[in-house]
């Protein structure tokens, strides 16, 4: 997973030139979406690994994804949120970013 993180970080400079600090620092929501085949136990495991949640929080978010179709799993500055989404994608979770 380090390569995915480095990919975002290495490119930060070139993109940052065209953006204001306010835009970059504005929080973005990381949303995980339900899919019909990913195992619930696996989703809990991935949320704990990537976002550091305890079992109770990860289970609550997984159940929200399962019953409501999606859940906001993190709210972070854009670059950090992109790293999180890339990590979730690498683990096979359906994750998107949206402005807070």
């Amino acid at each position: 997973m380090s390569t995915v993180q480095e990919g975002v970080s290495e490119q930060t400079g070139s993109r940052a030139e065209g953006e204001t600090k306010e835009f970059r620092d504005r929080p973005w929501r990381v949303v995980v979406w339900n899919d019909p085949v990913t195992l619930m136990t696996y989703v809990v495991f991935v949320l704990r690994r990537i976002l550091g949640y305890d079992l109770e929080t990860a289970t609550r978010l997984m159940l929200q994804v399962h019953t409501e179709g999606k859940a906001v799993v993190a709210t972070e500055p854009r670059e950090r949120a992109e790293v999180t989404v890339a990590q979730l994608h690498a683990h096979g979770l359906q994750a998107t970013l949206a402005r807070d």
Binding site: V4, E6, G7, R15, E82, A86, H89, T96, L97
Partner: peptide, 23 residues
């Protein structure tokens, strides 16, 4: 297996440029 990160096409293209090959 290769989901989108952004709804907006321009942002999605940029995300792909940054991490698509690493993923």
């Amino acid at each position: 297996a290769k989901p989108r990160a952004y709804e907006e096409e321009e942002l999605e293209q940029e995300f792909r440029r940054l991490v698509g090959s690493d993923l």
